[in-house]
């Protein structure tokens, strides 16, 4: 029983990390129709900000975490202002290529000006300690990951439902032109969406660095790839879908790892993606996505 509970917690922790990152991708996509593959570099910016802080002698984990999250918010806003705003009205493919361009530029900047090799960053190592919870030995990091993810999602829900800007973002996701006609500034709405995605990426970065204990220029690539898959599973553009997709992916990955016979270990990713493909055959729009026909105005 303990074993099953522990593995359940492991899967939930995987899912929470994917959900945090997927939510950031989904918020931007819901407004701009942009799959921001540079989201991984926002994670890297947060991590390298923490690294630089340690270099200058500031090693209080709470301070480092706050600065890292602030750096990722600023980084996301900067990406929007410098790279994505000029191509906002361009075809979707242009935005996608811009995202890849930003990703490559930022990765190479870290590579050239810091190091292509992993750099140690043990500042959040204290989160890896084990705590007892009802007789179960649990990593503090896992509990924090699940708890903070749920808190962040709840806070985001409140923001989207109760604040004017949040309501504007929801409305803009359905019909941006109408929102602008009502006097809301598009730049402000979109910049806020990027800031929120940066905030979520920054929180995820703290957890990723805590677990890895090191940073490297392409450290954001795999998490964002997983988050992209989570968004596809949940339904691209659906915020709830992104969260659900993240957790589904986490549980599928851990489940496959445990169930697949050792001799078939090399097929792990193939099995995971086959399951996802089957799901998409049944629901091409993802679990919570709405079906869009050619000519439909709303997503």
């Amino acid at each position: 029983m303990d074993y099953a509970l522990q593995q359940f917690l492991n899967a939930a922790s995987f899912g929470a990390e994917y959900a945090l990152i997927a939510l950031g991708l989904a918020i931007v996509f819901s407004l701009m129709g942009l799959v921001n593959f540079a989201h991984g570099e926002i994670i890297a910016i947060a991590s390298y900000a923490a690294f630089f802080l340690i270099l200058v002698g500031i090693d209080n984990p709470a301070v480092v975490a706050l600065v890292a999250i602030a750096a990722s918010v600023l980084g996301a806003i900067l990406f929007e202002r410098v790279a994505f705003r000029p191509v906002r009205h361009a075809p979707v493919a242009t935005g996608l290529l811009t995202a890849f361009g930003v990703s490559i530029v930022v990765q190479n900047a870290f590579l050239l000006f810091v190091s292509p090799r992993p750099r140690p960053l043990p500042v959040f190592g204290g989160l890896n300690r084990t705590v007892e919870l009802g007789g179960l030995k649990v990593q503090l990091l896992q509990l924090l990951e699940i708890g903070v993810t749920l808190a962040a999602i709840s806070a985001l829900l409140v923001f989207l439902r109760r604040s004017t800007l949040g309501l504007a973002m929801r409305a803009a996701a359905r019909d941006f032109n109408t929102v602008r006609l009502m006097g809301l500034r598009a730049n402000r709405v979109i910049a806020t969406a990027f800031a929120i995605s940066g905030l979520l990426a920054g929180i995820a970065a703290v957890f990723i660095v805590a677990r890895r204990g090191s940073i490297e220029p392409d450290m954001g690539f795999m998490p964002v790839l997983k988050a992209f898959v989570a968004c596809v599973i949940g339904g691209f553009g659906s915020l709830g879908g992104a969260v659900l997709g993240g957790f589904v992916l986490g549980f599928v990955e851990v489940g496959i790892l445990l169930v697949l016979p050792q001799s078939m270990g090399g097929l792990k990713d193939a099995v995971v993606f086959s399951l996802i493909a089957l799901l998409l055959v049944a629901r091409p729009q993802g679990i919570l996505g709405s079906r869009v026909e050619l000519g439909d105005k709303e997503r």
Partner: peptide
């Protein structure tokens, strides 16, 4: 005693750790 699978790039080993400790 056993063989367990993994992938290069793994940053969270908790499923395998749970398996080993059980």
């Amino acid at each position: 005693m056993a063989k367990l699978n993994h992938s290069i790039g793994t940053s969270d080993w908790s499923p395998q750790v749970t398996e080993i400790m059980a």
